[in-house]
Structures are given as C-alpha cells and as structure tokens.
C-alpha cells in the first residue's frame, strides 16, 4: 500500500476556502454530523482510549510500566533498529532517485515496480519470506550460521524486516521531487567544473533536503510501529528482541492491560508528534511530492 500517499496534508492554508453556498444548510449540517460521528467512533475514540486506559490504574502504575527494564530495553531496541533502517533507506532512496531521474535506461519500469512492491505485500508475508531466506533450511541461513552471523531472532532480522516494509517511503517522495526538479541545476554545476560528488553534495542534496527529511520522518514513524513483519522474525524474547509494539502485545496478552496501554500511549504520543512534524514539512514541499495522488 502506498503509505506515502496518505501524507499529503489535509489542510493547506494557502488554499482558499471554496464557496460552499451551493449545499443547503440541512445537507451541510448532515454531512458535518456524519463526518464528526464517523471520525469520532473510528479514530478519536481508539486514540482517546489509549490514554484513558494508560492512566486507568493511576500514574504510579503508568510510570512503573514505562521504566521497567523490559520496556526500556524495548525502547532501546526500537531506536537501534530505526537508527539502522532510516539511514540505509535514505542512501537507497537517494541512489535510486538519482538513477531513475537523471538517466534513461531499459528496465526502468521494473525498478519502479519493485520499489512499489512492499505496498502490496502483507507485513506477515514480508516477515515470512525472510524466514525462508535466513531460516536453517533457507538459502542463506546455513552459510551465515557457519560464519556466526545471526539474522533471525535477533536485531539484523528485525532491521531487514523493517527495511522491507519501509524503504519506499523515502524513495518515493525523492523520486517525485527530483523528477520535477530536472537536471538543470546539476548540469550547470558540472559545466562550471564541479565534480560529481561535489555537485551531489552542494546542489542536489540541498535541493531535496526537505523531501529527504519528510521521507525519513515517515520511515521513522513506521519503523517505530512495525508489527506484523517484525513479529514473525523476532522470536519474542523479552529484553532482547521485543520491540516496543511487540512489548505492547506481550503485556496485553499477559493481562497486564494498564502496562500495555502505558507503553502504547508512549507510541501514540510519538505518532502525534510525527504528525505535527509532517504538517510542518508539508508546507515546504511542492504538491506532487507528497504522494502521487494527483491523478491528472
């Protein structure tokens, strides 16, 4: 699925409010009521219940669940995974966008399709295919275990699963932006005698920095929250391979509901912060970059 598509901001202040005089007041009232009602029961209530349940047993339970060893470790692991995933995807995104927008070559649509593929794959399948590759009877599993490299049930597996699910989030906006910007700036720099790397660092990178940040933000949010793919490869070891979402699940299944929601509320707060940053970044990006939702 195209998660990046979701990110076009709903609200852009520069768009003038169109006249709505055409709709009768009754219809208008009715439509607004439906919107309020639908969004409330589908989104607002679940978000609210996360925080309500987190504090349902008092702030001492809330705090003690947050500072428990397993929670802190899960937080650390999630941050570690994100620290690997986001830079790796940024470098890939820049490299793929450079190749796809500065050159023409056969097989371009194939490359683009591959970049879109994770959107069509269930996260569980994404995790499962990694088990097929890195499991004991997989293609690379036996070789790597000879070498003493662990992938499944450890951090590399979680990183790989997260990369699979998130890499288009950075590559997509970058490709869209670099395509819209064309090559003129780079060509000028090159004709003035700058080297390839210098051109990239001083011309291209500043040009795309907001798109890069934007993709990085989305990728970060998703890395924090990825559940299905990670669940298959992690092994669920408390204090070792449980990421934050897996820790939430473990607590919830142990009937430690208040603790589960305490950790969940931390993730929910991060999600809200992400949305605020996203809103800020979207003002700095041209329309088409935020997602290919422009159909014309």
């Amino acid at each position: 699925m195209r998660d990046d598509l979701v990110l076009s901001a709903g609200d852009r202040p520069d768009v003038k409010q169109p006249a709505s005089g055409g709709d009768g007041p009754l219809l208008r009232f009715f439509l607004i009521l439906i919107t309020w009602f639908f969004l409330s029961i589908i989104v607002l209530l679940p978000l609210g219940v996360v925080f309500a349940e987190a504090f349902a047993r008092g702030s001492s339970v809330f705090l003690s669940s947050l500072v428990s060893r397993d929670t802190l470790y899960a937080l650390g692991l999630t941050l570690t995974v994100t620290a690997f995933v986001v830079p790796a995807n940024m470098i890939f995104g820049l490299s793929a966008a450079w190749a796809l927008t500065k050159f023409d070559f056969p097989g371009k649509p194939i490359l683009l399709t591959l970049i879109d593929l994770p959107f069509a794959v269930s996260p569980v399948v994404a995790g499962y295919v990694l088990v097929l590759v890195f499991g004991p009877s997989g293609w690379l599993g036996p070789v790597l275990s000879e070498l003493g490299v662990k992938v499944l049930f450890s951090t590399p597996g979680i990183v790989l699963a997260t990369i699979f699910v998130t890499f288009p989030m950075i590559a997509r906006p970058l490709i869209a932006l670099m395509e819209s910007q064309g090559c003129e700036d780079e060509e000028t720099a090159l004709s003035l005698g700058a080297g390839g790397l210098r051109t990239f660092l001083t011309v291209t990178l500043p040009n795309v920095r907001w798109a890069l940040l934007y993709g990085g933000l989305l990728c970060t949010a998703r890395s924090f929250g990825e559940f299905g793919a990670v669940s298959v490869v992690s092994g669920h070891i408390r204090g070792l391979t449980n990421t934050m979402p897996l820790h939430v699940e473990a607590l919830y299944n142990d009937n430690k509901v208040a603790a589960a929601f305490a950790v969940a509320s931390l993730l929910a707060s991060l999600a809200v912060i992400t949305l605020i940053f996203k809103f800020v970044l979207e003002r700095r990006l041209p329309d088409g970059v935020q997602g290919p939702e422009r159909l014309r």
Partner: peptide, 20 residues
C-alpha cells in the same frame, strides 16, 4: 478532525489493535 484522519497511518498497528 482533519488531523485525526492521519492517525490510523501514524499509530502503530498493535496500539490501534489493543485500543479497538
């Protein structure tokens, strides 16, 4: 409400799951 629309995307699925 407009901001809320993005919540299902940004909220980790497991969190949404236990909340629902």
């Amino acid at each position: 409400l407009d901001a809320l629309v993005d919540i299902p995307f940004a909220l980790p699925t497991a969190v949404a799951g236990i909340a629902l």
